[in-house]
Design a binder for these strands. Structure first.
Lengths: 235, 235
DNA sequence: CTTTGTGAAGAATTTCACAGCG
DNA sequence: CGCTGTGAAATTCTTCACAAAG
């Protein structure tokens, strides 16, 4: 399975850091969201089938994912919702709110700054930055936009470890360089370009046009398929 | 994500519809963007190594991806930039601009409506919808926000095949149902929830908090790793 | 009974490494 | 030569199916 020989049939991981497959890591947040919904409905246990449905995956996959956490479900019953929430939050490092710096306060930046889910899901925006002197000083919600030149001091003072880039593409690499130089080790990039960063820095990317183009491929294909066969595809 | 509609024994894949692996489809838009950059710099050929670097992948993967489209490279030289752009746009169904409906004109909706990359990358927003009577009638750029009740008529009239949902989570499923009923067969969902749709409808999801939580996992892990060894990492 | 946890089978994807074309 | 295209190997991910636990 993994490169390291597994000792004793128990997750070899240290207590806090199981070596999770990347695909599993990417799904844990979805499980967490589903669990919070269940908790709000005062459900205190849930079966793998039920949680899988709520998270949009199949139940075998969910069970295998959770088994990597060393998680304790109860056979015949299911998982304790609160316990599972705590375990997943622990593994994801969400036990305390993480400070995020948001760079690029244009249209998208404003929308991100106003996103309530930030606060409720383990993060807080600790600083807003822009390079445009006309935007510096502007108030957005309870915060003031700062000059990008201050980024190093602020990242240090506010213990920021995650940067969100919402600038135009041509500025994104320079911003990334500054964030990394300031000590940021994770970046979420909304600019449509590839960022080059040193080893040890993680980058994730969100690109609206790419998502649409992927959908376009399937549209294209669907329309071609329904054009050819007289088969009723049943909508 | 289960469209095994193909399985009639022989490959329906015509010249224009190679049966691409999903992972390849997801990367083609990134190659396309990189190619457009190269074209702007008047580069007319590019090696797999060069394009791979520009797209942030490794060159063997890129070559294998492109080989699925058929062979358009020249050994010893590389790929013709313009030709490859046309091939990829063809395969992705981008030869004509696709009409998109945007539902939910809050903070994020405004930002999406103003996103220039829409137009330049194969799409145009054909309609804006919201359920809030206070927002209906508002002008956003050159468009007017319509009542969600009009969605069926407009989807039909404007030949809209892709819907983008930027509503709060609690409204997203209802909106999705209406879009699907109106004939939309691809949805890009920005609301933090799972959408249930009929077979044959594709859904992709973008969730800011999930991306941050994935980064958080790696942050958590990095800080644990640097805490153990007595190496000075600064501070 | 019901439902978890998991070996083992099966798919998909990535990477390697090199034959062969220009 | 340099560089593409591709079988084959390696790896990762998903699904199956069932033993064991409550």
């Amino acid at each position: 399975m993994s490169q390291r020989a597994n000792g004793s049939g128990f997750a070899t991981a240290g207590p806090d850091f199981p070596d999770l497959p990347e695909a599993t890591v990417a799904r844990l947040p979805e499980y967490l969201r589903a669990l919070h919904n269940l908790a709000e409905d005062d459900q205190d246990t849930v079966s793998s089938e039920g949680l899988a449905a709520a998270a949009g995956v199949n139940s075998a996959k969910l069970r295998k994912d959770l088994s990597h956490l060393g998680s304790y479900g109860t056979r015949g019953v299911g998982y304790d919702v609160q316990l599972l929430i705590e375990q997943i939050e622990q593994v994801l490092g969400l036990h305390e709110s993480r400070a995020v710096a948001l760079v690029g306060i244009g249209n998208l930046g404003h929308a991100l700054a106003g996103y309530a889910g930030f606060a409720t899901r383990g993060f807080h925006i600790a600083a807003l930055f822009d390079a445009d002197p006309h935007r510096v000083g502007e108030r957005v919600g309870t915060m003031t936009v700062r000059d990008i030149a201050e980024v190093e001091a602020v990242v240090d003072a506010e213990r920021i470890s995650i940067g969100v880039i919402a600038t135009p593409a041509h500025a994104a690499q320079r911003v990334a360089d500054r964030l990394v130089a300031a000590g940021v080790t994770s970046i979420l990039n909304f600019a449509p370009c590839v960022l080059v960063v040193p080893d040890g820095v993680d980058v994730r990317k969100v690109d609206l046009a790419i998502e649409l183009q992927i959908l376009s491929f399937h549209e294209h294909r669907k329309s071609a398929l329904t054009a050819l066969p007289a088969k009723a595809v049943g909508q």
